[in-house]
C-alpha cells in the first residue's frame, strides 16, 4: 500500500506498477496479485489474462508513447498512467490532454515517475487527477500546489473556456 494524491487529497493506493526489467519479457513477467498498472507491451501480450483476473488493471504509458496505442481499449481501463522519466520531460502533459480532449477518457490519469510539487498545478490543468509523488517528497505540502493560480489564462482540461471568454461574461 502506498500513498498517492487523488482528487487533491492524500489517499492509500493498492495498485502495483509492473515494469519490465532487463531480460524480462511481456509474456513472462510475473504479475503480482491485486490491482495493476502494466506497460503497453504487457497489456497487448496478455490482455485476456489481465481482464480475467477480477482486479482492476490499468496501462501506463512511457514518455515516448502516446494514447494512440491504447485508444481502442480506453473504455475498459479504469486508470491510465503517464510516466515522467525526468520532471523536465514534458511529453506527458500533451499525452494527458489528448487522453481527455481527443479520446474523451473519463477514468483516472495518474502521473508516475519524477512527479514533484511544482508540476502538480500544470499537470492538473492538463487532465491528471492522480499523482504518485516522487518518494521522499512531502505530500501534505504538495497538495497546496493545486491552488497556485486561481484564474489562469488558457483553455485546458480543468477549465475549457479561456479567461478571455470568462472575462467577458
Amino acid at each position: 500500500m502506498t500513498t498517492i494524491i487523488k482528487n487533491r487529497q492524500a489517499v492509500a493506493d493498492d495498485f502495483s506498477t509492473v515494469t519490465l526489467a532487463e531480460g524480462e519479457t511481456a509474456e513472462t513477467v510475473a504479475l503480482p496479485a491485486g490491482p495493476l498498472l502494466v506497460p503497453i507491451a504487457v497489456w497487448q501480450a496478455r490482455k485476456t489474462e489481465l481482464q480475467s483476473r477480477g482486479t482492476p488493471v490499468g496501462v501506463w504509458l512511457a514518455a515516448g508513447e502516446g494514447p494512440e496505442a491504447i485508444a481502442g481499449d480506453l473504455a475498459t481501463l479504469p486508470v491510465v498512467g503517464v510516466h515522467f522519466p525526468k520532471f523536465v520531460d514534458g511529453r506527458g502533459y500533451s499525452t494527458a490532454r489528448l487522453l481527455r480532449e481527443r479520446y474523451s477518457y473519463c477514468g483516472e490519469i495518474r502521473a508516475l515517475g519524477d512527479v514533484l510539487h511544482d508540476q502538480l498545478f500544470l499537470m492538473a490543468r492538463c487532465g491528471f487527477d492522480a499523482f504518485a509523488l516522487k518518494e521522499g517528497k512531502d505530500i501534505a505540502k504538495a497538495v497546496a500546489a493545486f491552488e497556485t493560480f486561481r484564474n489562469p489564462y488558457q483553455a485546458a482540461v480543468d477549465q475549457p473556456q479561456p479567461l478571455f471568454r470568462r472575462r467577458a461574461a
Binding site: G90, Y93, L122, C126, Y153
Partner: peptide, 16 residues
Amino acid sequence: EIMRQWSTFHPEFAFL
C-alpha cells in the same frame, strides 16, 4: 498581448 496571455503559464508547454 493576446499571445502573451495565452503563453503565460501554458500548462502543456512548460517543459518543452
